Simulated assay, not measured.
Amino acid sequence: MTRTRATTIGFMAVLLWALLALFTVGSAPTPPLLLNTLCFGIGGSVGLIWAWVTGSFSQMRQVPLRVYTFGAVGLFAYHLLYFTALRLAPAAEAGLIAYLWPLLIVVFSGLLPSERLRTGHVIGAVLGFSGAALIITGGGTGLSGDYFAGYLLALLAAFTWAAYSVLSRLVGTAPTASVAVFCLATSALSLPLHLMFEETVFPATALGWASIVGLGIGPVGLAFYVWDIGCKQGDIQLLGTSSYAAPLLSTLALIVAGFSAPSMTLLWAALLITGGALIAARASFLSN
């Protein structure tokens, strides 16, 4: 597979992740750990079908346990943080903060062998974090205590997913189908924790169940398999910077669906985060 084709396949995940916030909001009031259990159970099933179609079962048996542990912990931690953040804070604002991960991928990738961090990457990071700070401080009027916990968790989610994506390059020998095991392990880990710490609350409407199924098939299912291909075989810096289509599309989807209202703070934050991504993207193109 060529580097360009792998990058294009990886970008399919960005389009799917643009629906992550919308489906997460639609799945309310299902608590985060239960949502992890259900969605990753579906996502893991998608992976088993992927393995069957590609004939990857024999390769999956050769993957070291440390790789499966790495993948399961990464998926579990990120989505627990993300789902909880969107339960504790406004979806569009928390989603934008969480979508700092593409820029963080570019910055972190500069630490990889054969990759180079340029000045444009640093400037882009500063602009992106300025956009996040604008949201957290409520447009410069001071810290918003009501939603601060949600915003903080969204920021931690961004760091978690960026670190997971970049470090996956270091375990590049694992077949993409092994992501199915990551998903099923995440589901299995989430269930007992849910039973210990959460009240079981299922969606009360067909829309809620459709949102959970949609999460499991798309943003928490197929997206991981195509992203894995992109990160391991594609241009990781270009993939990270082009991922900034996701926060804009995600925010627009929430507004169109009526889950979020447009505001100047949201607009300026989106412009800062996107502007930072464009500067970082230019730096990536110059380094290629």
Rank of each mutant, 00 (worst) to 15 (best):
T4S: 14
I9V: 14
G10L: 03
M12E: 07
A13M: 12
L19T: 15
L19M: 11
T24R: 07
T24Q: 05
S27R: 11
T30Q: 07
N36S: 08
T37P: 01
T37S: 09
T37V: 11
L38M: 09
F40M: 10
G41W: 00
G43T: 12
G43Y: 03
G44C: 10
V46Q: 02
W50V: 12
A51N: 04
W52S: 13
T54K: 13
G55S: 10
F57M: 04
Q59I: 09
Q62G: 08
Q62I: 08
V67L: 06
V67I: 15
A72H: 03
V73E: 03
G74L: 13
L75H: 09
L75M: 13
Y78K: 11
F83K: 08
F83M: 02
A85F: 01
L86S: 05
A89P: 00
E93T: 14
G95C: 09
L96N: 07
I97F: 04
A98E: 01
W101P: 03
L104S: 06
I105H: 00
F108E: 05
F108C: 05
L117V: 14
L117Q: 06
V122S: 06
G124M: 09
F129L: 15
A133D: 10
I136G: 05
T137P: 01
G138R: 13
G139E: 07
G139F: 03
G142I: 10
F148W: 05
Y151G: 00
L152F: 08
A154H: 02
L155M: 11
A157I: 09
T160I: 13
A163W: 08
S165E: 00
P175T: 11
S178D: 02
A180I: 13
C183F: 03
C183G: 02
A185V: 15
S187I: 10
L191N: 01
L191E: 00
L193N: 06
H194S: 14
L195K: 10
T200Y: 04
A204F: 07
T205E: 02
A210V: 12
A210G: 12
A210E: 01
S211L: 11
I217P: 01
G218K: 07
V220F: 14
F224K: 10
Y225H: 06
K232P: 02
Q233K: 12
D235G: 04
D235I: 14
I236M: 11
S242P: 03
A246H: 04
L249A: 14
S250A: 15
L254K: 05
I255C: 05
I255W: 00
F259W: 11
M264H: 05
M264E: 07
T265I: 15
A277T: 10
A277V: 14
L278R: 03
L278S: 07
F285D: 03
F285S: 06
F285H: 13
L286A: 15
